[in-house]
């Protein structure tokens, strides 16, 4: 075979290299054009997962409720009363379980968003970031009925409705940014190291205990200020604490928690986007 300078042929014909990563701006433009795909994928996946169960959509609310009931009966009995704050225990617990579930599900589903969709990644061209985004959209779709049911339950349990309840909306916006950032980071890490899926439940468990779901961190760690400060720097704890504050209208969460909620969400999201985008060419290649 004679040697042919293929690169020169390509250059002459004005062809571009296939598979080169798009610039940051072009990448976001592509994502915006394909937003309908991410939204429909999320929406249809919710419908599909529900159509397989007899109780359908009710499970979105039923499973955290059963969790709360379990923790309530076990830890409501064995944990001493001084581990609780001034807020009524059962609504306190339910808010904790519901809000924490938004984080834990985003984390585990986000981590699997690339590896779990390998065949999709291998057969179609689209900005890969749409997959973790679709997972977060799905979690948000499921969050809305959860929050509504949560409010009804706490009302039935005797917490009076207040205008402060609307503060839940900005808190959840910050938390969604945080969750998306975490999902993007864990999605890429899982591509490099499959073993991540084994570690994620462990990290989630640690987060669960350091967030303070069935006890008040502030009450338990009252005599260990240094530890308490570290625990309070965990954004997930602050999202839960801020929602509790909003629901009980108690002023229990200090104002600086808003800074961690907002900045923590924003910084995690920016880091997540950059970290995920940098490996765009590598997804689905091994």
């Amino acid at each position: 075979m004679t040697t042919i300078d293929y690169e020169a042929i390509a250059r002459e014909a004005g062809l571009e290299r296939v598979g080169a990563r798009a610039s940051f701006g072009a990448y976001f433009k592509q994502m915006w054009e394909r937003r309908g795909f991410a939204i429909s994928l999320a929406k249809y996946r919710v419908q599909a997962s529900m159509s397989d169960n007899r109780l359908g959509l009710a499970w979105i609310v039923l499973s955290p409720l059963l969790n709360a009931a379990l923790y309530g009966t076990i830890f409501g009995v064995i944990m001493p009363r001084d581990t609780r704050g001034d807020e009524p225990f059962i609504p306190f617990l339910i808010i904790g379980v519901f809000i924490f579930q938004f984080f834990s599900k985003s984390f585990s589903a986000g981590a699997k968003s690339i590896t779990g969709n390998a065949s999709l990644v291998r057969s179609l061209n689209f900005p890969r970031m749409l997959l973790p985004i679709a997972e977060i959209i799905r979690q948000v779709i499921e969050l809305i009925p959860m929050i509504i049911v949560m409010m009804i339950i706490v009302m039935v349990l005797g917490v009076p409705p207040a205008w402060s309840w609307f503060m839940i909306i900005p808190i959840m916006v910050c938390m969604t940014m945080f969750n998306l950032g975490v999902a993007l980071i864990s999605a890429r890490l899982t591509v490099h190291i499959r073993d991540m899926t084994q570690i994620i439940p462990l990290i989630t468990r640690v987060m669960f205990y350091t967030t303070g779901i069935f006890y008040s961190l502030e009450a338990v760690l009252a005599d260990q200020p240094a530890l308490l400060t570290i625990a309070q720097l965990n954004p997930v704890h602050d999202y839960v604490a801020l929602v509790r504050d909003a629901v009980f209208n108690s002023g229990s969460a200090p104002a600086w928690m808003w800074w961690i909620a907002g900045l923590g969400g924003f910084i995690t999201l920016v880091v997540g986007i950059l970290f995920f985008w940098r490996a765009e060419e590598r997804y689905g290649h091994d």
Partner: peptide, 27 residues
């Protein structure tokens, strides 16, 4: 189609080649 990165060499194209198939996207 640009779905696998080459170990060596390269592919050039006038526009992004598309692999026919939607199997993986369907539920």
């Amino acid at each position: 189609a640009g779905l696998i990165a080459p170990a060596k060499g390269q592919v050039f194209a006038a526009s992004r080649p598309a692999l026919l198939g939607v199997n993986a996207a369907l539920i």
